[in-house]
Computed example of a mutant assay.
Amino acid sequence: MHPSGSFSFDDSTWPLLVVRLTGEPSLKTFEEFLSRSTQYLQRQERHVCIFDVSELHLLSTEQRQRQVEWLKTNEVLMRQALLGIAYVITSPIVRLTMGVIFHFKSPPAPYTIVSHPSEAGTWAAMRLEEARLRAPAEHVRREYRPLVEVQAGLISGRGVPGTAGAALPPHR
């Protein structure tokens, strides 16, 4: 049996929103997660989301259907507020699950699927930069600096091209 599921929302580096969904969420927990997600969209503030499901075990059929419904219901809000979504997925089963969900309803915002938070941070910073949110983009680059720099003692925070996939998650 897998540990019970949970979720968290970290907006401490807004306009970057980091969402984590872990374990096997109950139906109640999943509905709370969707409700909280809706609240962020209703703020109607442009932002990028890193959606980390690297510790998610599996969504039930009912939860997958509910996710598709939620995407359809919130399509306009997502199109208005989301500059992009970077999904962090490490499990082939979860990747397949997301593929099934996206088959029925793709996110209405640009998205990418990556296997490491550093790749998500690099992509999120790029999306912020494209939206002319340069200061937040630079902050995200510093937060998701490549592990190579940290190991070398170069903790200035500038990303090194070609090192995506080797960074530390944000420290809180």
Score class of each variant (00 low, 15 high):
M1T: 12
H2T: 06
P3N: 08
G5C: 01
S6I: 07
F7E: 06
F7H: 15
S8R: 09
S8W: 02
F9A: 07
D10N: 10
D11K: 11
T13H: 11
P15K: 03
L16G: 12
L16T: 00
V18P: 04
L21H: 07
E24A: 10
P25D: 04
K28T: 12
K28W: 04
T29I: 11
T29D: 08
E31D: 10
E32F: 07
E32L: 13
F33W: 06
F33L: 13
L34V: 06
S35C: 07
R36M: 12
R36C: 13
T38E: 15
T38L: 13
T38I: 03
Q39R: 15
L41R: 10
R43S: 07
E45S: 13
R46E: 07
H47L: 04
V48F: 03
C49V: 15
C49N: 13
I50F: 09
F51V: 01
V53F: 02
V53R: 13
V53C: 07
E55R: 08
L56E: 02
S60Q: 06
S60F: 00
T61A: 09
E62A: 11
Q63D: 01
R64G: 08
Q65G: 15
Q67N: 12
V68C: 07
E69N: 13
E69A: 09
W70M: 14
W70F: 12
K72G: 09
K72M: 08
T73N: 14
T73D: 13
N74F: 00
E75Y: 04
E75R: 08
E75K: 05
V76Q: 12
L77S: 06
Q80V: 05
A81D: 08
L82T: 00
L82A: 07
L83T: 00
I85P: 06
A86N: 02
T90I: 12
S91N: 03
P92M: 05
I93T: 09
V94M: 08
V94L: 05
M98C: 05
M98N: 05
G99P: 01
F102V: 07
F102E: 14
H103T: 07
F104Q: 10
S106R: 14
A109M: 00
Y111A: 10
Y111V: 05
T112D: 07
I113K: 06
S115Y: 05
H116L: 02
H116Q: 15
H116T: 11
S118I: 01
S118P: 06
S118K: 02
A120M: 01
A120I: 02
T122S: 14
T122D: 14
T122I: 10
T122Q: 14
W123Y: 04
W123T: 04
W123C: 04
A124L: 08
A124G: 05
A125P: 02
A125Y: 05
R127S: 09
R127I: 01
A131I: 00
L133M: 15
L133H: 04
P136M: 02
A137C: 09
A137I: 01
E138D: 15
R141L: 05
R142N: 08
Y144T: 13
Y144H: 15
P146K: 03
V148M: 07
V148E: 14
V148A: 03
E149W: 12
E149A: 15
V150H: 09
Q151H: 11
I155V: 14
R158S: 10
P161N: 10
P161E: 11
G162L: 01
G165Q: 03
A166I: 01
A166S: 15
A167H: 12
L168K: 06
P169I: 08
P169Q: 12
